[in-house]
Simulated scan of single mutants.
Amino acid sequence: MKKITLLITLLLFFKVHAQFFEDEFGPLPEILTIDEWSGTDWDEVASQEATFNVDCLVQTITTLISGINVSRSIYSYNQGNQVIEIIIQTNIAGTWFNSSRTQNTYTGDNLTEEIESNWNGSTWINSFRIQSTFTGNNLTEEIESNWDGTNWENNLRRQNTYTGDNLSEEIESNWDGANWGLFSRTLYNYNGSNQLIDDLFQLRNAEDTTWENANRSIYTYNAADLLEQESYQEWNTVNAMWVNSEQRTYSYTGSNISAIISSFWDGFEYLPEDRSLLTYNANGLIAQLIFQDYFGGDWENTSRITFIYPACQSLSTEEFTTFDFSFSPNPSSNYLKVLNLPQGHTVLNYMVYDMSGRLVQKGKLNSDLTITTQFMTDGLYVLKLSDGSYSQAKQFVVNY
């Protein structure tokens, strides 16, 4: 019941529903159904229904609880198919009322400003803002601010440093009313293949201005360069050592994730806690996601999500069939390397689309045929390669 409550809460309160589903599950479905396991059968408790335009861009997403309309999101786009406005509405006694709004501003392909506002019954009132600065496609700074009724007041700042295209350091600072004060930082390390192998989170000691360890994540990969395990550790200040905390293990069918098992450290060993089982349709899109808890030595169903997609989501397997390629690692947490290109297809343009049809990144393949993915949110994407005459597109997973 805990997972069901969480999923319904997310359906109701995540303001940008399409982004939530891309982050958590991948492509945006036309119909999404959440079921609860009764012990003998699945019982539907909530659903979402989406409509799409002729370009396969989402127009509306409606959330239903027990078959009753509860909330909906309405999307608007610019000529470049970038989302410029999302209006969230709630249903009261059969009438839709405005609730909140997100407005996006872009510089080229980069989202440089997001403004959230709330409806007071007659007009929109500013609430929250994120301003982003880029160097090329690399996000170098984000500033979050809140509306005080008259002006925007700074709240949080993130500053990113890179080694090449790899994010090496992220620093967060808080605004004290006059100055930015350092709060935390994350350090990222990579192997020779540019795969993320660990990230270290530290907190700033305000007294002696030193950085103190807090927690870290360690990533390992299998022989196919697929993410195999994430291990999480907490820093024990008394003993000055790392202590195991949690672990996530991934299994695959081909390059598709088939199972994710989460375990916790009991002081001696990792014990399984819950797992997610994923199945896919003929187009390689997630068709079903089953959540289970580990109890008494057995896995027990708790909830299920079923995905049904619009016909336009078959882009990756039906539209481009003129040449082939592969890539690694998949899932990707930092970069994607294109492999096995046929002879004569070495100079290529690339475009990356999320599964609501939005172009999130484009460019020309560099000499080592790698594409940076570290600023894409978790989910499924479509990579399209083109040499001007021929095109091919395939899906890949971003997972941190």
Results as ranks from 00 to 15, higher is better:
N349P: 00
Y350S: 04
M351L: 09
M351Y: 10
Y353G: 01
Y353D: 01
M355N: 08
S356D: 14
S356I: 15
S356T: 14
S356N: 12
G357E: 13
G357L: 02
G357W: 00
G357A: 05
R358E: 14
L359E: 10
L359P: 01
V360K: 09
Q361C: 07
Q361D: 15
Q361G: 15
K362M: 13
K362D: 15
G363H: 02
G363E: 05
G363Q: 03
L365R: 04
L365I: 05
L365K: 04
L365Y: 04
S367L: 15
S367F: 12
D368N: 12
L369P: 02
L369I: 05
T370C: 06
T370S: 13
I371G: 06
T372Q: 10
T372G: 11
T372Y: 08
T373P: 02
T373S: 09
T373C: 08
T373V: 11
Q374T: 11
F375C: 03
F375S: 06
M376K: 05
M376I: 08
M376D: 07
M376V: 01
T377C: 07
T377Y: 08
D378Y: 02
G379F: 06
G379T: 04
L380Y: 14
L380P: 06
L380V: 15
L380I: 14
L380T: 15
Y381R: 03
V382T: 13
L383V: 02
L383T: 01
L383S: 04
K384G: 03
K384V: 13
K384N: 11
K384R: 13
L385I: 03
S386W: 00
S386N: 13
D387T: 03
D387H: 00
D387S: 00
G388Y: 01
S389P: 03
S389C: 05
S389Y: 12
Y390R: 07
Y390S: 08
Y390C: 01
Y390N: 11
Y390D: 13
S391F: 07
S391E: 15
Q392F: 12
Q392K: 10
Q392G: 05
A393V: 00
